[in-house]
Amino acid sequence: MSSTPGIKPIPASKPAPTPLPQAKPTELLHDQYSFLAANLHPVILLSGLALSFNRLVQDPVMTLARAAPVVIILQALYCFLCLPSTGQAPPQPKNKWKKQAKPSQDFGARAVPAFLSLLLTITLTIPALFLVLIFFGAPLTTHQAHTILLAAHLGLLATPQLFYVHGLDVRVWMQAASLQLPLDEVYGMSLGAVLGAWFGAVPIPLDWDREWQRWPVTVLVGVYVGACLGKVVGGYLVKGWRVKLN
């Protein structure tokens, strides 16, 4: 693979687009730092959550807002250090200087897509996820800041790695949305975060009258635990499986 920029774009005008090759599970970069960083990643996320839990319960908005930049950096580092960037560049002019993914990618070829992945997460997926959260029952007339920050954390945990690995190909994203990608640690983390958010709503109606039952603490915990669980399960236990809904 050459390191020359300019990857041939997918011809959009073709009447019958080439069928998408069967997606394969993502493999980590082949160096020990990647392996170490990839396994340290969920540990850092969860311990961060555990350490800031009390502050989160006391002042969710402030805590989530302060934690967001840290999570951005963590996710960028995760993409940068551990994951192969998109094999096929999406037909985006701004990506033309991006280098192709390979174990010996140089700094720019990995840093730029990592940066773009987070940019896309912030501009595209977080607003979309905010809407999804509202649709699934998040408060609309109150707690907007809480819900926006929850969407931000959900988006940060669920999507940068997908952008980084799969780029912007609509068909791949359709596959991702319809659960047709093979499970791996990237996709597992995304699915885990989303499922975790859904399950996180369970304790809210209980009459225990605890502080942590307030919006959005349980859902946020669900997101973090789900993402880390999904990452580990997807990366090791069920790697390569596909979800089949008849």
């Binding site: 649709f135 699934f136 029952g137 359709m174 949305a177 319809s178 659960l179 047709q180 859904w198 709503a201 369970v202 809210i204 109606p205 209980l206 009459d207 225990w208 089949k244 809904l245 008849n246």
Partner: peptide
């Protein structure tokens, strides 16, 4: 408390089922 707040169960499962239907339709 879940008996008293049963509506939350249905408000919680219904969107998930709708999403599953959409995913299935996409697949």
């Amino acid at each position: 408390s879940y008996v008293e707040e049963e509506q939350h169960f249905w408000y919680w499962t219904t969107p998930a089922w709708l999403a599953l239907l959409a995913v299935r339709s996409l697949q």
